[in-house]
Design a protein around this nucleic acid. Sequence first.
DNA 1: GTTGCGATAATGTCTATACATAATCGCGGA
DNA 2: TCCGCGATTATGTATAGACATTATCGCAAC
Lengths: 234, 234
Amino acid sequence: MKHLHQRIRDDIEAKIMSGEWPPGHRIPFEHELMAEYGCSRMTVNKVLSTLAANGLITRRRRAGTVVAEPSSQQAVLQIQDFALEAARAGVEYRFRILHRSVEPIDAAAAQRTGLPVGTKMLCLSTLHVMDDVPQAFEQRLINLATVPEADKEAFKDDPPGTWLLRRVPWTDAEHIVRAVNADGSMAKRLQIQTGTACLMLERRTWQAGAFVTEARITYPGDRHQLVGRFSPVA
Amino acid sequence: MKHLHQRIRDDIEAKIMSGEWPPGHRIPFEHELMAEYGCSRMTVNKVLSTLAANGLITRRRRAGTVVAEPSSQQAVLQIQDFALEAARAGVEYRFRILHRSVEPIDAAAAQRTGLPVGTKMLCLSTLHVMDDVPQAFEQRLINLATVPEADKEAFKDDPPGTWLLRRVPWTDAEHIVRAVNADGSMAKRLQIQTGTACLMLERRTWQAGAFVTEARITYPGDRHQLVGRFSPVA
DNA sequence: GTTGCGATAATGTCTATACATAATCGCGGA
DNA sequence: TCCGCGATTATGTATAGACATTATCGCAAC
């Protein structure tokens, strides 16, 4: 092993992961680990601090350090950028803005976003197409109070999602994934049969408390899936 | 602010989040921050190291530190434990094991899991019910080579997922979310109409390279959704 | 027995310093 | 002009020590 703190970390992680140290088990005190590895307390402390930050262990002054209870199950899902995905797969990607308008927010959306009714929003409907096959339909609201420059943007080169991601950093996001049956107009847009199961991904993002954008992306269920790989430790 | 490193961190995070320091912007060198805050390099280093671990900044020796490009979009979804969710909602939760057998793994599952064909698996089908309404149907494979004690477990008090989570720590997980139309038997089990859009969550977990379990959970699309809230920094 | 308080022990933060490592810059030679 | 190599520089890791903070333990007074 190259670095001391890496070795200590791996040892402790292995003991926790293998179940040798089950949840609730008391981990050796810093001075004990110091002696065991023949290193300074700072080194041990760094290891234990990062493990605590990762949620693997719980530390309390005077009481000591114990293995944390298993956290609630979480899935981390990658949400692929269409252009990138297409480039990797070697297919052609296009998008088409089907609708564009500036409108005061309606009651339902105001409820969801926490904005006052009547706030001016840029409303965009975009169809994402790969190799002439529709892949997703995106309905997006952009808060012009937070992102005024969006009003002047033509979205010629980049679709709204990509443009926003590059321009506006976000601090909080909320995701909802649900399954819906395609209604007539959605089926027509996506070239699928009415009633086909679709994945609908809804994402709302905020920047330091200010609402930025809401996206509702509908994928044909038979063409798309969300995939994620996850390890609990960094 | 209570602690120095906290203040430095908050300052830098604020500058990044506000867009004052856009992606690619060079962050002051450690010795510059030392001077600015009148502290030692270790303190600055700790802050920058954790920010780098969180993916907010990118550090390279000699070249310096820059604000990272916005990470690819990720959704962190909470996968609720049925019993917990029911308790919070104040409704009754029950589960019923519909099928149980030990079988050699078939070719398709062997492909997915990377196990050799013929490995003995515990196969369980579980229906999750809240207030007499079916909420999800779970098909699970448990690798008896990794979790031999599962064979002797009756799953009387806890459903297989909860039991496993408590017993076997995991190091890697893969998630797939897709939308499917309910076929006849699924519709019957979940008391929905044939063709209704359903969310199917597929999760495979490993422990240090050894396959543990695969779960395929089907939720009626109109009764369930996956929700996640996500902030990029801890 | 119960309560309160001081001693104690563990983690949390911070400093000053040292040496290692890696990447870049710029100079000199081919 | 271009290539290679050494000097430089910023980060990476580690040390030893100091003081702060906060639970907990145990003793003493009630």
